[in-house]
Design a protein around this nucleic acid. Structure first.
Lengths: 351, 351
DNA sequence: CCGACAATTGTTAACGTTGCCATTTGAGCG
DNA sequence: CGCTCAAATGGCAACGTTAACAATTGTCGG
């Protein structure tokens, strides 16, 4: 029952108006739930909309309102568990608020392709932008190339204070992980890090070091990784050679998984000989050999909060005369999402 | 160097025209790379564009052209490795073709929220739709509710032949896995399946059974799972009780991972006592204990092909007078992406 | 029953771009 | 040198919607 159309074209507001016997403006009022429409008129219009299967043309609406009702998301590493979850949270929250989501995935991390992706988004098509895990120098600095006045929120990493940033409280998560190991009696904790140039990797390194030092333990050399299981495996082989390694904190679960494999291969038992803690609580974490103790950040919540923050920014902008834009940015609270520690079988008292 | 603007508002085509001393129409011609513009004029316009940092308003353009240059993607389970990879492939391919991507993630699998998500997309905002892994009955049938005439492509699962579908050649992948195990001398192969109501799960079940029967081996009862590591673990515990289980094919790597864990817990050695094969080749597969033999489908390629197919559909529609739409659909080749078998340490000759 | 005022509805003009057609300019040729 | 024709450019209208204002209708007190 597709309804009557003019020559097969989708119905437009004028068709609805004609069928309902009112002006387009009245239809518009019904669509936008504005007051001062008689109940009887409203239902007549709604019936016409139903009959014609009418859908407002969002491009026309966006054009006249000068607002796209769409959020642009620039997403890196969107295959990874964390970013993918955040993306999901963003999508759901945006849709709930009546916003569409368009995503741009830069080809690579170099500044050029990032700026290009942003340009794509910003052709007046989005009301604001969220960058997800742009945690690399080139990426964060590209954030600054966004048109002045376009609301933006960064997830996890931003170049400076000009962009409100929603983050996992990584330092707190790392602290939980490291202190958990120390409480088990380990004399120190080794760290397999993410790629050095990534901000979140850097943050975790620093938090790890700080926690150790605060507790009066020496911080060993960082074993560098790149988030991948492969790099965790390599790190594990390296650590297996070392003496006195009894506790390792990996900057994410994938690397922890590689560690487990390497230790297993070398006949090192987890957790009897070495305790391992990860970060992310990927869905598989509880089913590794052994089940992995890890830090669980709520990535979806990060997505939700970033949308919330962005929408506040967008609304604030609408209200402003446009001059006190900076004040509005400063006003926006920058939420921290606090992770939890999930204890499983990969950690045990020091041997 | 943001350039001169009228009252802080972003520049529009008229501003560019004025600065370059030409008409808006000429600017438009330059923007759209149309012929018959003098070289000198063109460069003057380009310079003005640069100076003003002008970006065409895509909503205005879409409005007048009656085409959004945007692809809508409806994505389920987008946190999973497969769908996330496909999404990435779609994003890259679309962007390369100059199309934007807007995604909609239905809240759940029920028909209502799916239809709602589609409605969001189809408010004349997208030139076509791709559904990613809508492999559930409600989801695929919802596909049919898309407005007639809106080009659509399904990834992996479609309700019928009206929607071109890009798929992994699952049957072929399953065949590889099962035959690999049979060649190793196993008398039969057990199967831990995905959720029954999912089409791809169903396809894998049937291919598994067919391969066994073709080889003259009995097909044991299916052990049902739900894609999760947890369900694989439960399946593993169950299989560990059974007699004569020497080879298991899991419908995805996550479940295979759960299997490995369960067998390990029960003292069953992989691959000495039982061989395990997965499906997906998640990045971690090579670093499990033991490294997992698995079927590797190229999910990103699926994404690319689906965009390619959709664009062909869109272009075809533009050309048509609109009447031979169905012919155009039938014309579009439906590609099969053939997976490969990755042999690792989780499989060995039958004990 | 009239006037004032609120509620309801309609009219006109934008939003920024491109399609269509008209106009101007320039080149080539008899 | 004038004519033809192509190349280059401009003017106007339209895409579908909403903002701003105008007009109409209805209600209520005096």
């Amino acid at each position: 029952m597709a309804g009557v159309r003019r020559g097969g074209r989708p119905a437009v507001i004028g068709d609805v108006a004609r069928l309902a016997g009112v002006s387009p403006q009245t239809v518009s009022r019904v669509l936008n739930e504005r007051p001062n429409v008689r109940e009887e008129t409203r239902s007549r219009v709604l019936e016409a909309i139903r009959q014609l299967d009418y859908r407002p043309n969002l491009m026309a609406r966006g054009l006249v309102r000068r607002q796209a009702h769409t959020i642009g998301v620039i997403s890196f590493d969107s295959v990874l568990f964390g970013p993918a979850s955040t993306l999901l949270g963003i999508g759901r929250a945006a849709r709930a608020a009546g916003y569409g989501v368009t995503i741009a995935t830069p080809e690579s991390f170099d500044r050029g392709s990032i700026v290009e992706a942003m340009a794509d988004l910003t052709s007046h098509t989005v009301a604001g932008v969220i960058t997800v895990f742009a945690s690399q120098t080139a990426a964060t600095s590209a954030l600054l190339s966004l048109p002045k006045g376009l609301p933006a929120v960064a997830v996890e990493a931003a170049p400076d204070d000009s962009v409100p940033t929603v983050r996992i409280d990584q330092a707190e998560g790392v602290r939980m992980a490291v202190e958990h190991l120390l409480r088990l009696g380990h004399s120190t904790v080794w760290h397999v890090s993410g790629p050095r140039e990534r901000m979140d990797a850097q943050t975790r390194i620093e938090a790890w070091r700080a926690t150790l030092e605060r507790a009066g333990h020496p911080a060993p050399q960082v074993v560098p990784g790149d988030w991948s299981a492969e790099s965790g495996y390599q790190a594990g082989l390296e650590l297996a050679e070392g003496q006195g390694v009894t506790a390792v904190f990996a900057a994410n679960d994938h690397m922890a998984l590689g560690l487990l494999r390497a230790f297993n291969e070398r006949g090192i038992r987890v957790p009897e000989d070495v305790s391992v803690v990860g970060f992310d609580d990927i869905p598989e974490a509880g089913y590794l050999i052994p089940p992995l103790t890890t830090v669980r950040p709520d990535h979806e919540e990060v997505g939700r909060r970033s949308v919330e923050t962005l929408l506040r920014l967008i609304d604030g902008q609408d209200d402003d005369a446009g001059d006190s834009q900076d004040a509005a940015v400063a006003d926006v609270a920058v939420p921290f999402v606090v992770p939890t520690l999930v204890r499983r079988a990969s950690t045990a008292p020091a041997p």
